Amino acid sequence: MSALLEVNDLRVTYPGRGLRARPVEVLHGVSLTVGVGETLGLVGESGSGKSTIGRSVLGLAAANAGTIRFGGSDITHVKGKRRRQLAREIQVVFQDPYSSLNPSLTIGEILSEPLVVQGIAPAIARSRIAELLDQVGLPGNSAARLPREFSGGQRQRIAIARALAPEPKLIVCDEPVSALDLSTQARVLELLDGIQRRTGVSYLFISHDLAVIRHISHRVTVLYRGDIVETGPARVVTSTPDHPYTQRLLLAAPVADPVRQRIRRAERRRLAEQTGPAPGRSAAE
Results as ranks from 00 to 15, higher is better:
226 G>V: 04
70 F>V: 02
22 R>V: 07
272 A>L: 10
265 R>H: 14
46 S>N: 08
254 P>H: 03
240 T>M: 13
122 P>N: 03
49 G>N: 09
149 E>F: 02
137 G>S: 09
246 T>C: 08
137 G>M: 11
10 L>E: 07
116 V>G: 00
191 L>I: 09
158 I>P: 05
27 L>R: 11
54 G>L: 12
233 P>I: 08
70 F>Q: 03
60 L>E: 03
196 Q>G: 08
172 V>P: 14
137 G>H: 08
84 R>C: 04
101 L>I: 08
73 S>D: 12
246 T>E: 14
102 N>A: 03
126 R>H: 12
35 G>N: 04
69 R>M: 04
40 L>A: 08
4 L>S: 02
274 Q>V: 15
25 E>T: 15
15 P>N: 10
112 S>R: 13
10 L>K: 04
218 H>D: 15
31 S>H: 13
137 G>I: 11
240 T>Y: 13
72 G>R: 12
18 G>N: 10
89 E>N: 15
81 K>W: 03
172 V>M: 13
48 S>E: 12
89 E>T: 12
259 V>R: 13
258 P>M: 10
102 N>T: 01
91 Q>F: 14
127 S>Y: 04
273 E>N: 08
18 G>A: 06
8 N>E: 13
232 G>Q: 11
112 S>F: 00
30 V>R: 11
117 V>Q: 06
233 P>V: 07
53 I>Q: 06
48 S>H: 04
57 V>H: 12
149 E>L: 03
185 Q>H: 03
214 R>I: 00
202 S>L: 02
141 N>T: 09
252 A>V: 05
222 V>E: 11
1 M>Y: 05
216 I>S: 07
244 P>Y: 05
190 E>D: 15
95 Q>W: 10
87 A>D: 02
56 S>L: 09
124 I>R: 15
16 G>E: 06
162 R>F: 09
141 N>Y: 05
230 E>A: 13
154 Q>H: 10
210 L>C: 01
126 R>G: 01
134 D>G: 15
106 T>Y: 06
255 V>K: 08
276 G>N: 04
